[in-house]
Amino acid sequence: MIVLTNYLIVGCILFVLGAIGFLTRRNLITLMLSAEMMLHGVSLNFVAFSNFHQNMQGQTFTAFILTVAACEAGIALALILTLYKRTKSLDVSLWSQLSEADIDSPHEEEPAVPTTPPAQKFPQLTPAGRAPQFQKETVHRV
């Protein structure tokens, strides 16, 4: 017997965690990912009901959700690029033009950048294709 409730609970948890991420994080890319995760939770919900009812309507709807999520991702990334180009930052707090004119900027209350950043490394892409010209010259000189 398939327990519908289990899947619904997992879907709910994913949705809520996505929502929390959307609310708290400030990186535009993380925000987008959080929204996608909320969609995951909803999709899981649909699929579970589809299985429960033994018909395809839930799955069909999930297919549409996938479509919309793809559209959303495309446009969101284009937007993120544009916004990044304007401010050289992915901080969503910089985009608060809708605020009332006379209230304080939300930036002022936040603590400063950590002075000693943790030694964290970004994953590096391994260089591919032909090596740049200057490397050759170096090699040649050596």
Partner: peptide, 17 residues
């Protein structure tokens, strides 16, 4: 009431939630 209208998307989303 005015600080509610602070222009931050997350804040609006929070109110929706």
């Amino acid at each position: 009431v005015r600080p509610i209208q602070n222009g931050l998307v997350s804040h609006y989303a929070w109110v929706m939630l």
